Amino acid sequence: MKAPMTVLIAGRNARELEELEQMLANQSGLSVSTRLITNGHSDPLHNVVDLPDALVFCTTVAWEDELKSLDERPAQGRVPTLVTGPENTTVMRTSMRVGARDYFTFPVQKQELLEALWRVARELQPANEQAGGLFAVINAKGGSGASTLAAALAHSLADRIEDRVALLDMDLQFGHLASGFDMQESGSLIDAILRADNMDLLALEGHMMKHKSGLHLLGNSSDQLVVPGDIDESQLQKLMMLLRSGYDHTVVDLPRQIDGVTGALLESADRVLLVMQQTIAHIQDARRLLHYLTRYLGVPEERIGVVVNRWNKRLALTTSDIEKALGVNDLTCIPNDYARVAESANLGVPLLEAAPSSLVSRSMVQMAESLSGKKVVPQSGLGRVWRKLAGA
């Protein structure tokens, strides 16, 4: 989990400071403190050694001196600042002239203040800072089990790695991931995409379903027919940026098709997991999809992992056969345990909870370890069925 953004609320009016502190208390991603200015200085950051990431400055009738003190601070001693004050055009314009990012009058609207703070948070994120990982899971051939594995991977990351994880069900017409967690579809993926311009993490969480493991699920519960052409790809990208800024990992279950929506997600994914089974027909479709990914979407080969679901060592096709046919060097093999997986789905209980010692569960936990780069309690007895996907 990323460190929260530190916010200092400063000013001479104790009542206003308390009101703003209560407004921002317990907000995910924020660490809030207050400073009542009583030292005779107008500068809210006077003698502050560890500068906050953002400042909320409550001005008073002495606003001219207070804003002047902000303007006189050296460049290295400035932080992104939001100003509160009277409903006065002169004060507002002066605030903006000295560098304020936004201006608010009391009573401050909570949602507007949060949105301004999240805008600052996004601006502060360095371009080279690694955002939360994006893992796209897609079937090479229909029915290969991509949705099951996407759900199991996301659940493993949340439950065993204990990271902050979002799971997106991008099957806009027949998505069903919520049923695997015994949750009734209530998410609003389409609405979240439409509102991505003005949405912060708090608002986004309001659109998501929450599982007891800590996993957050976003799907489409609308009865209206939605097709990929209805999705604004630029809005979708903004939503993904918001997810990656607030979650350690985002797992996306993609439908088996190449269009503007899936293409955008596949291109931006840190890892594309191509799910297939141990048959010639699956090899043929996997080879075609690999061609589309690398040739037309420009996804580097090293970002693509081939996952063979329901692996059975007794079948004629070996890992070497599949690797040779697809031109890949490494496979991830998930053992076949159809009965337990089907029972888990029917009960609406994640496999890791229903059968934590099964080979499938242990394989998915190891996949979560590999993709996250973190370790959980070692799982024994798995043997060499699992082959590392990310190359630790």
Rank of each mutant, 00 (worst) to 15 (best):
S320W: 08
N312P: 14
S320A: 10
R288H: 14
L331A: 04
A316N: 07
I304T: 01
L290G: 03
R295E: 12
Y296A: 12
R340S: 15
A354K: 08
E353K: 13
M367D: 04
L293Q: 00
R295L: 07
A325P: 08
T318R: 11
V341R: 00
A342L: 07
S357Y: 13
Y292A: 14
W311E: 01
A342R: 13
G327E: 05
E353Y: 08
E301R: 09
G298T: 01
L359W: 05
L347I: 09
K313C: 11
Y338E: 15
R288C: 04
V308E: 02
S357R: 12
L290K: 00
P300F: 12
A345K: 08
T319E: 09
G373V: 05
N346L: 14
T332R: 06
T319W: 08
V365R: 03
I334Y: 01
E369Y: 11
R362M: 15
T332Q: 12
P356G: 04
M367V: 13
D321Q: 07
A368N: 02
V328C: 06
V365I: 11
N329G: 14
Q366S: 10
L371V: 09
L347R: 10
G348Q: 07
A325V: 13
N336C: 12
E343K: 09
E353F: 13
N336K: 15
L347P: 10
T319R: 06
P300C: 09
N312T: 14
A355P: 11
G348R: 06
L351F: 03
A354V: 06
Y292E: 15
Y338W: 07
K374V: 05
L289R: 03
M367R: 02
R362Y: 09
V308W: 03
A342I: 10
N329F: 11
R303Q: 11
K313G: 14
N312L: 14
S344F: 02
R310G: 00
A316D: 11
V365W: 04
N346G: 12
G373C: 06
D330V: 07
A368V: 05
S357P: 10
P350M: 06
T319S: 11
